[in-house]
Amino acid sequence: MIRAQANLRYWTPSVALEIFAAWVLAIFWVAPLLYAFWAAFHASEFAINFTLFAPLTLDNFREALSQAPFLRYGFNTFVLVTMLLLSQLVICTLAAYAFARYEFAGGNVAFSLVLVQLMIAPEILIVENYGTLANLDLIDTITGIGLPYMASAFGIFLLRQAFKSTPKELEEAARLEGCGAFGVLWRVYIPLARPTYLAYSLVSISHHWNNFLWPLVVSNSVETRPLTVGLGIFGAPESGVDWSIISAATLLSVAPLLIAFLLFQRQFIQSFMHSGIK
């Protein structure tokens, strides 16, 4: 009943104004991306000439692909993100399990030391980490780009929370059934933490798909360069590339993630909400 009254207030002028404001803001927010689409699918003479029925073309994409190996860059990014996510899931699961269920000596101190990485991301220590990577002979390798991020404090933190909220009784039941420590982890903790795994994975994928500074420093060949770095080199103003072609290249680089986001937007948005921090 009260709900109905609240809804009656809905169409007051101030509410109508709010809806109007919401849409104006939204148009401003999608305009840059829409513009990139416009430029990419039209010949360059239409880049700033918005004729509604200007002929569509794929030439800009063809040109971008012929000027730089974006497919190879895309493959590199895919390898990087996949390898990184798999290692993160394994490493973080083990560490989180230790923190959540083994009250080992020094555990609290160790946990606060893990959290340090939330503040000091590997790219902040770019100078020293580059030196370390050079000593390991991993410069210009995809492994080298991923290695500093494989132990993720954020992943350990999220999974520890999830494991801690798992009822102890379930573990005891599994123990009675004859499960060992890893059996319990595999059959009880991991299945129950599935939403956390999903959230973490989506955040990790989008973060590393978009990461730039560290991959820029580490990679210097076509075989290792991820999309962001390839695009960064391609789009450099001094390279004198046509505007429409840069737009096409930009769209090529963001397309896989953008499409995944549009298809699974609810999961993406929920994941970012759930995760709290990047």
């Binding site: 083990l94 560490a95 083994y102 080992f104 160790a110 340090v116 020293e128 980490n129 500093p148 132990a151």
Partner: peptide, 27 residues
Amino acid sequence: RHVYGWLLLTPAAILLIAFTHFPTLAT
């Protein structure tokens, strides 16, 4: 349980020390 705890933590600890704690001090 102390041994198991630290064993589970080892991979993460090595990487975190190598790319966060050590470089901070080295800087």
